[in-house]
Amino acid sequence: MIARIAYAFREMWASFRRNLTLTVAAILTSAIALLLVGTTFLIQRAFDNLLVQWRGDVEMIVFVRSDATPEQISLIDQTIKAAPTIIDAEKLQYLDKTQSYEEAKRIFVGDPVTLSLLTPDNIPSQFKVVPITQDPELVRSLSEQYRSLPGVQDVALAEDEFQVISTLSRFVRTVTLVMSLVLLVVAVGLIWNTIRTAMFARRREIEVMKLVGATNWFIRVPFMLEGLLHGLLGGIASCGGLWVLNSAWTNGVAGFKPGTGISSLVVPSSYLTGVMLMILAIGALVGAIGSAIAASRFLDV
């Protein structure tokens, strides 16, 4: 058994070095494809950060001053619920200061300055409002009414922020996703071609192997390992690229004034690690698929 594993790795390595030009091309292509896949996920997450407060059809947020009295809060609550034909009272959600602070920690992950100014005591609490009506004008006029209530700090409308961000987000996601898919297919194709060439170069050996009774798996495994290695190396390279990209982005964003909203585009490093692991997995998978197709096709004698 050990002899077989040693054989597979020895053969993989020999073949890997023999075809250096094609090998490098296959690795570079998969690296670029995977880098794009990773970037797609990071951008997606960044936009999600911007939109986190607008989850669940919330279209209006009423921010309540941190020094509002319980009576004022209860008055706001009643006022909102007093328009049941426009507002969905069931889905009305009140985040107290602690909950609002938890949410702020996520939104301002890349903006420690703003975050440090907020405490669970001075942060405004908030009502998240889900309207029933489809008429934006009605919601807008309602928001004007809420703004004049005592204790209300501000009223934010989803329409204003949401539209731009979500349209942009959807567009960027579609473009990067399509591009990365195309590049992934190209990477599979290049790995396939590299493995096919490697097998063709060794067709005499493969013929002899088949005649003396080597199993197809025995013949196939070194080539599949080689393809896997291509994908994995591509994955490692793209992880490096992703890390550099994300660091540069985080540093660049830090230069903006706090509270401009740009800072919420920063992705937490735990998420980056997750994306990197996923990219390594996708890389290995792409390599295995490419080489498996090549190996099974070529072995049909």
């Binding site: 002899a3 077989r4 050996e205 002899v208 192997m209 003396v212």
Partner: peptide, 11 residues
């Protein structure tokens, strides 16, 4: 030796 190697015979 190749003929024995590829059917998994030990060294």
């Amino acid at each position: 030796a190749f003929a024995l190697e590829v059917i998994g015979k030990p060294r």
